[in-house]
Amino acid sequence: MLSPESLRRIDREIAKYPAEHKQSAVMAALIVAQDEKGWLATETMDFVAQYLGMAPVAVYEVASFYNMYNLEPAGQYKLTVCTCLPCGLQGSLDAADHLKARLGVDFGETTADGRFTLKEGECMGACAMAPVVLVNNKKMHDYMSNAKLDALLDELRKR
């Protein structure tokens, strides 16, 4: 269900916790699974549940509680822009507008070519460096002027 490489990574996480608390690794395991699969399908959550000896619905609870898990397929690149008050004061709404215009989608939508999903985010702990854009949950880009946004999109399109 998951690749041996993914399982190896999950095992590494499991080892961080006392043996009887494998469940502690569920967040990391879901991250690993999402990295491999792009999103968390029912079968994927079920597999993780089995792997960690958890009730599937308990895994579902976790996957739906933390908002960086994709419970539905997303675009190849999920761009999340923080629009919280401090970021907003520093121009992140303009940055979001710029992205919307460039991509032709609104928050919560995916471009027709399936490449980009644009999301509105809550505080990412990088307020002073606003505007911040998170790419696929893991790569944070800060001080995003319109020029830097354009460069980012170009680079992602090229990949």
Partner: peptide, 20 residues
């Protein structure tokens, strides 16, 4: 554990695992 409460805040809802 056959029922759980998924999502959070006002969106929290009681469900069984998908399709179960």
């Amino acid at each position: 554990m056959e029922l759980g409460m998924i999502h959070r805040g006002e969106h929290a809802e009681i469900v069984a695992f998908v399709g179960r």
